[in-house]
Nucleic acid binder design. Structure first.
Length: 843
RNA sequence: GCCGCUGUGGCGAAAUGGCAGACGCACCGGACUUAAAAUCCGUUGGGAUUCACCUCCCGUGCCGGUUCGAGUCCGGCCAGCGGCACCA
């Protein structure tokens, strides 16, 4: 840190104002029903993705989104809204626990320390959060309700008739557990030996854990699942109602992966068994020359012929030992084994061989396919390798096999000559009539694996008795984790909570569930709790819910990395809560904006190993919080990925110093006092135009979240007035209000100092009303109009604003320069755009 | 392989189909200063011509199209980044 003098004394007034705001509870937002609540104001709920309080502290990526929302929050307050702008901590989860294990401390302690550090760092940036509403997912008063919501899900089922979740009491079937939205199943799961826990599909990237990058293997285990797949259709359809980036919507759509097709039943020759397959191309049924089952398919044992039993067993053993990563790597080369069994094609009674191969996945569709090698690349590859027949049943123009396009059916009996779309309808109806198949929609989305074998998470409010699970009563919540000395994963797949022998014992005959919930549980509903954070009767009170959550969160800003994780899970929970009548909106987040990642100054992703990480604390110390905020916003468009630049920080810092000197000047002794150039005087027309043009630009840019151009407009205005002497006080006043959401400390300080001498600076600037521009004052009397010849600018005319097109045209043609270029020939055509330009098409 | 996003000065970037490069950084020049820092003023896309002013040509990843006019719209490529990836 250099000892050089600060261009303006931010180091003195920034902490002072932060202290002022805290002691005066300036940012407190009253709820409906409280005395200070003003019902006449519209609400605005602006939300950040709450941080994971890691051991590393804040990095400069955090304040990017947070500054954007803070500007919006402060701006909306100045435009007369009741603004909900909260902050909290997503503090359960793997990294916190890993960190605790590494440092040999209890996760509750490390979490507490990290939260302290994060809170202090955020407060140093001057964000206008209502800290009265602070929440942490690890707080029993909070996770009590996470557990309660889990129980609502547990007690519900998805009624296909009404397409919504209902209480299990409306279910008439024999086995409620078969429809429960929260259920236990023995399924092949992603087991991460290094982390000692299972992971959701969404937490596995390229066969490795998203946290830590450890290998993940497939392993059948008994786990808690949430039946998110029942909502797949709604999760796709209701995206259309949201103001989200199209890219994120698409990411979710692709992840959910809807595909329309048919189920077709094949009987097995010389057996009572039947195999159901899923296909998106039922029109190619006549081209099916063999069937493939996933190696894990339950029918494999039953149908395998004795002669093939050994080969089948060997193949299955080879597959099961492989990790997902190995399996993907081997994907290029198809493998498989003949079962010795044959299926009967329902459409032509043809006997076709049944194979098993790992290119067919257990979890998707029925885990079995009909192979049509002529029209599917994978089947083609497999058929070629194992010398299976290939029969073309669709013809298109100039296509080589495998042709997977849509055209005309051939070699298909009653389908011959039909275009693909029609053939699909015809064959599906044919199958349906005979009970051999039906139209089906399939999704790639799997049910959500919801249990973890870790210590640092919410315990399930579930007990086991005689091999059956049931819920504990609401009054027993919160169910807190037992205090464990040794909370490390056991490594065997048994959760650490199993060590707490006392805690596990629920009664003489019942024991507690020892799995814990994943980190996502707490973040699925935190935005609801902010609305009513201290309510002890309900997870959110109906009045607060109705007010703050009307039409959902108005603006949600966060990173794109949660596209198919948090954002999908939270929508799912919200829909369940909505169906059960606990919340009134169908979607939680009406408008979503993704901030772009901030890269190191080398243009690379910031990381400790690269040594390009920027610590916001250092920036604040050297340049101040306002400079940090302003630079984060001035770098470029919010959504864009952009590299950090220290000289860029200096640039905005200089700008803030110029604003400071607009109001203050330094005397011989180096003391700052109000500038002698400041005077209460009328603005000239030009000055007034500049001020109102800036109000318009800044207002519209903030609404569009185009903060970088808003800042540049304020720079232009500042440059305009630095040379003004005398300097009109009203222009400075307007500038300070416009700048306040961006640089709250500086503007608050200058506002107070101006109030010592001038009127119109009462109170704090935070409470001022946002200025409004007068459109008529923006109009200039004379404007400059470029004259183009064939699209190239050749001359400029200065004309009255309201000059008629015909007159402008005459002036343009009369200009000596233009005459010369035209060379006496008459123009072919003249286009006059009033107030904009003239374009002459020369002959 | 499929889907999406992004390509504009030395750098971050700006531009409802209408003067490409606002604003900032960096560079260079000047003022102030004994000097430096800070601050203030000014120049700066490339090229040709000119003592200079002027003037002209080229220029938004590449090729083509629509238009009086394209960074912007349409079609086809290329590159970088991100997502999905045997999903039948």
């Amino acid at each position: 840190m250099s000892e050089k003098r600060k261009p303006y004394p931010f180091d003195q007034f920034e902490p002072r104002w932060q202290n002022f705001w805290a002691t005066h509870d300036t940012f407190r937002t009253p709820n409906p029903g409280e005395p200070a609540f003003d019902a006449s104001r519209p609400k605005y709920y602006v939300l950040d993705m709450f941080p994971y309080p890691s051991g590393e502290g804040l990095h400069v990526g955090h304040p990017e989104g947070y500054t954007a929302t803070d500007i919006i929050a402060r701006y909306k307050r100045m435009t007369g809204h009741n603004v909900l702008h909260p902050m909290g901590w997503d503090a359960f989860g793997l990294p916190a626990e890993q960190y605790a294990i590494k440092t040999g401390q209890h996760p509750r302690l490390t979490t507490e320390n990290n939260v302290h550090r994060f809170r202090a760092q955020l407060q140093r940036i001057g964000f206008s959060y209502d800290w009265n509403r602070e929440i942490s997912t690890t707080d029993p008063a909070y996770f009590r309700w996470t557990q309660w919501i889990f129980l609502q899900i547990y007690h519900s089922w998805f009624n296909p008739a009404t397409q919504r979740a209902e209480h299990l009491s409306t279910y008439n079937g024999a086995d409620p557990d078969s429809v429960r939205l929260a259920y236990v199943a023995e399924v092949p799961v992603n087991w991460c030996p290094e982390l000692g826990t299972v992971l959701a599909n969404e937490e596995v990237v390229d066969g490795k854990s998203e946290v830590g990058g450890y290998p993940v293997v497939r392993k059948p285990m008994r786990q808690w699942m949430l039946r998110i797949t029942t909502y797949a259709g709604r999760l796709i359809d209701e995206l259309d109602t949201l103001d989200w980036p199209e890219g994120i919507k698409l990411l979710q759509k692709n992840w959910i992966g809807k595909s329309e097709g048919a189920r077709v039943t094949f009987s097995v020759a010389d057996s009572a068994a039947a195999i159901e397959v899923f296909t998106t191309r039922p029109d190619t049924l006549f081209g099916a020359t063999y069937l493939v089952l996933a190696p894990e398919h339950t029918l494999v044992d039953r149908i395998t012929a004795a002669a093939q039993a050994e080969a089948v067993t060997a193949y299955r053993a080879a597959i099961s030992g492989k990790s997902d990563l190995d399996r993907t790597d081997l994907a290029k080369d198809k493998s498989g084994v003949f079962t010795g069994a044959f299926a009967i094609n329902p459409v032509n009674a043809e006997r076709i061989p049944i194979w098993i191969a790992d290119y067919v996945l257990t979890g998707y569709g029925t885990g079995a396919i009909m192979a049509v090698p002529a029209h599917d690349e994978r089947d083609f590859e497999f058929a070629t390798k194992f010398d299976l027949p290939i029969r073309q049943v669709v013809v298109g123009e100039g296509e080589t096999l495998p042709f997977s396009g849509h055209d005309t059916a051939v070699n298909s009996d009653f389908l011959d000559g039909l275009p693909t779309a029609e053939a699909k309808i015809r064959i599906t109806a044919w199958l349906d009539e005979r009970g051999l198949g039906a139209k089906t929609i399939n999704y790639k989305l799997r049910d959500w694996l919801f249990s973890r074998q870790r210590y640092w998470g919410e315990p399930f409010p579930i007990v086991w008795e005689n091999g059956r699970h049931h819920a504990i009563a609401d009054r027993e919540l919160p169910l807190t984790p037992p205090p464990l000395e040794d909370f490390k994963p056991t490594g065997t797949g048994e959760p650490p909570l199993a060590r707490a022998t006392e805690w596990i014992r629920y009664s003489d005959t019942a024991t507690r569930e020892t799995n814990t919930m994943p980190q996502w549980a707490g973040s699925c509903w935190y935005y609801l709790r902010y609305c009513d954070p201290r309510n002890e009767e309900k997870f959110i009170g109906p009045v607060a819910e109705d007010y703050w959550m009307k039409n959902g969160v108005d603006l949600y800003v966060g990173g794109t990395e949660h596209a198919v994780l948090h954002l999908l899970y939270a929508r799912f929970w919200h829909k369940v809560l909505c169906d059960l009548g606990h919340v009134s909106s169908r979607e939680p987040f009406q408008k979503l904006v993704n901030q772009g990642m901030i890269l190191g100054s080398d243009g690379q992703k910031m990381s400790k190993s690269r040594g390009n990480v920027v610590n916001p604390d250092i920036i604040i110390e050297e340049y101040g919080a306002d400079s940090l905020r302003l630079y984060e916003m001035f770098m470029g468009p919010l959504e864009q990925v952009k590299p950090w630049s220290m000289s860029g920080v200096e640039g905005v810092h200089r700008f803030l110093a110029r604003v400071w000197r607009l109001v203050m000047e330094e005397n011989q002794e180096g003391h700052w006092h109000l500038s002698s150039a400041l005077e209460e005087l009328e603005l000239t027309n030009k000055q007034r135009r500049a001020v109102h043009g800036t109000i318009k630009k800044v207002t519209e840019d903030i609404e569009a979240l185009a903060f970088n151009t808003a800042i540049s407009a304020m720079m232009v205005l500042t440059n305009e007035f630095t040379s003004a002497n005398p300097r009109p006080i009203s222009a400075v006043r307007t500038l300070l209000i416009l700048l306040n959401p961006f640089a709250p400390h500086l503007t608050e300080e200058l506002w107070q100092r101006l109030g010592e001498k001038f009127s119109g600076f009462e109170g704090i600037i935070y409470h001022q009303i946002w200025p409004v521009w007068e459109e008529s004052w923006l109009i200039e009397d004379e404007i400059e109009i470029p004259v183009q010849v064939n699209g190239k600018v050749r001359e400029r005319l200065t004309v009255r604003k309201d000059l008629a097109s015909a007159e402008i045209e005459a002036l343009a043609l009369a200009a000596p320069k233009i005459q010369e270029i035209l060379g006496g020939k008459p123009p072919k055509k003249v286009i006059v755009v009033p107030g904009k330009l003239v374009n002459i098409v020369a002959g």
